[in-house]
């Protein structure tokens, strides 16, 4: 659906490229996670993809045609949710949504969406009186109101309580099940792990790694199993490689010792993030 080839972007007042020759592809119907530390170039990439930043170098194709060949009708097909809460503060939530809704040819019924994210009862409240979490949910609904084919979500659950975060993630997965495509940036690795079919890690304007979360975890994980057991009141641990667990010694240990825990050497996306980008995640 989107093909990016040797994308480079430099801000006017900057000497260095914010994005420095990246290639990736987002297939139709997949959720593509774009990860990286602050200032790595992920927001810049998103802004280039949604045509807010012009003057990029390289090639971007959307639906088989150069992105630059699309006029503003491009926005009929996409939904964008920014990281920061954006709404007209003195208008109610419903007035905000109704204003934007009238700019699109195809729209959806707002009532079920607002009910789903728990904003229906507060729809007549001014957006400025909303909490941060409510504003983020309002952003999310704004991105969905034109029934888009492609969603660009920047930190969609950041600042949202766990219950509503769960609802929003379910909605993203349902969007995908209906054939929608998602470009997602987030620092919450649990969300990425749960939602994304493929992820790409960007650091200092370059792509450092790309693949399905499962494949990356296998690639960066240790193919081992660690057994923790108690013997004479003391805790011991022993690590076996995948080859060693087929040997009798592994089974013997399991049968004879008082096993407390079994751990695979599978890594987490967070560890991969730190490894490939060289930056620790925010707490």
């Amino acid at each position: 659906m989107i093909k990016v080839k040797n994308l480079r972007y430099k801000y006017q007042k900057s000497k260095d490229y914010a994005i420095n020759g990246i290639d990736f592809q987002i297939n139709e119907g997949e959720i593509f996670g774009f990860l990286g530390p602050s200032g790595a170039g992920k927001s810049t990439t998103q802004k280039v993809l949604i045509k807010l930043l012009r003057g990029f170098e390289g090639e971007i194709e959307y639906q088989g045609k150069p992105l630059n060949s699309y006029d503003d009708q491009f926005y009929q097909d996409i939904g964008v949710s920014f990281e920061m809460p954006i709404s007209f503060s003195k208008l109610t939530a419903l007035e905000n949504l109704e204003f934007f809704k009238r700019l699109y040819k195809k729209t959806v019924d707002l009532e079920p969406l607002l009910k789903r994210v728990g904003l229906w009862d507060d729809r007549h409240k001014k957006a400025g009186e909303y909490s941060k979490g409510m504003k983020i949910r309002l952003n999310f609904i704004r991105a969905l109101l034109n029934d888009p084919m492609f969603l660009f979500l920047d930190e969609p659950t950041n600042g949202v309580d766990p219950a509503n975060s769960r609802i929003m993630k379910d909605m993203i997965l349902e969007f995908k099940q209906k054939g929608g495509t998602v470009f997602l940036t987030s620092h919450i690795m649990g969300d990425i792990d749960e939602l994304c079919d493929r992820v790409a890690f960007i650091a200092e304007g370059k792509l450092r790694e790309e693949g399905a979360p499962r494949d990356l975890k296998i690639k960066y994980g240790r193919r081992t199993v660690t057994v923790e057991y108690r013997e004479n009141g003391e805790l011991h641990s022993q690590t076996f490689t995948m080859e060693e667990i087929k040997l009798p010694s592994f089974f013997k240990l399991l049968q004879e010792k008082e096993i407390e825990t079994l751990h695979s050497g599978e890594t987490t996306l967070e560890e991969i993030f730190i490894k490939v980008t060289g930056v620790k995640l925010r707490a």
Partner: peptide, 17 residues
């Protein structure tokens, strides 16, 4: 107000020219 509330971002990702 548009600057303060960053609403121009939202308007510019709609079909408005």
């Amino acid at each position: 107000y548009e600057k303060k509330e960053h609403t121009i971002n939202s308007v510019m990702v709609t079909p408005v020219t």
